[in-house]
């Protein structure tokens, strides 16, 4: 009797993880050197949430997926060129900073306001997806606060699997300590799911889906509402890079026996 889900995926953008990052201080607080120039990607765990959302929507007729993203409009436009090829969605944009030094409570406020304003969103069908942690701020606190603001108090974090039962119930597997999972059953939407890696590989690019998405992405970017987010009340006394270079001793042209002996001694020592 499923009439489908309204799946809203919250996903920010982050610097490509292969880039070298360096903190700098700006009048608005800490930031990254050349932040606007760094190539960006959709936050990885949020990407998994998007792939899971698209997969779920495909199997539940009547479903719809929105991607709600807070970031500088120009950067979002770049990132969407590739994300749009992966899965069908409608984009909702909050035009504001995407950095890792903003406050999750403020970000949650902006995201919740944008979600509230989505025309035709049925909260009784709402599945609010996102990554369980961002690759920028990395606190794992935003999704809970967005959920609270929208009145959704069935919440799950570190989700790797969602199975919809014949009765519309949601069976959810969340990561807990020591490589174990907690399995819960929620009677149905609305619910918040902060995804870990999930179970789906990254979908291949689909240019047709990309074209379809782009038709809605450009107007969404034009309609972007400015979002003023920062880190009110927070003082950053210092932001530093760790002293990470080690003096690596390279052992080569050495018999495997000697290496093995050295490793065994090291482990035991």
């Amino acid at each position: 009797m499923s009439t489908g889900f309204h799946i809203v995926v919250c996903g920010g953008i982050v610097p490509d993880p292969l880039q070298t990052l360096e903190p700098v201080s700006t009048p608005a607080g800490p930031g990254l050197k050349n932040e606007m120039m760094l190539p960006a990607i959709l936050d990885p765990w949020a990407s998994h949430a998007l792939f899971e959302a698209a997969h779920l929507a495909k199997g539940a007729p009547g479903s719809k997926v929105w991607l709600v993203s807070l970031g500088p409009k120009a950067k979002l436009q770049q990132v969407m060129m590739s994300v749009a090829q992966k899965a069908p969605f409608e984009l909702v944009v909050c035009d504001g900073p995407a950095g890792g030094f903003t406050e999750s409570a403020e970000v949650a406020g902006a995201l919740a306001a944008a979600i509230e304003a989505i025309p035709g969103l049925d909260k009784t069908k709402l599945l609010l997806f996102g990554g369980w942690q961002s690759a920028s701020r990395g606190t794992g606190t935003t999704m809970q606060m967005v959920g609270e603001r929208l009145g959704v108090t069935e919440q799950f974090q570190g989700v790797d699997r969602l199975t919809v039962g014949a009765d519309g119930s949601l069976e959810i597997m969340e990561r807990v300590e020591g490589g174990a999972y907690q399995v819960s059953v929620c009677q149905g939407p609305p619910a918040v799911l902060g995804w870990a890696t999930g179970e789906l590989p990254e979908p291949p690019n689909n240019p047709q889906v990309g074209m379809q998405n782009m038709r809605l992405i450009m107007p969404a970017l034009q309609k972007a509402r400015p979002a003023k987010v920062g880190a009110d009340g927070v003082t950053f006394a210092a932001v530093e890079l760790p002293k990470q270079r080690r003096e690596t001793r390279i052992v080569k042209d050495t018999p495997a026996e000697d290496i093995a002996r050295e490793i065994v001694a090291w482990i035991g020592g």
Binding site: V14, P15, P17, L21, P23, P30, L32, G100, F101, A135, S136, R137, G138, T139, G233, V234, T235, F236, A237, A238, V239, E240, L241, P242
Partner: peptide, 15 residues
């Protein structure tokens, strides 16, 4: 606390 997946750390206080 660490930012950007353990790439840099910040010392923070708040009101």
């Amino acid at each position: 606390r660490w930012h950007y997946r353990q790439r840099m750390y910040a010392e923070v206080t708040r009101t």
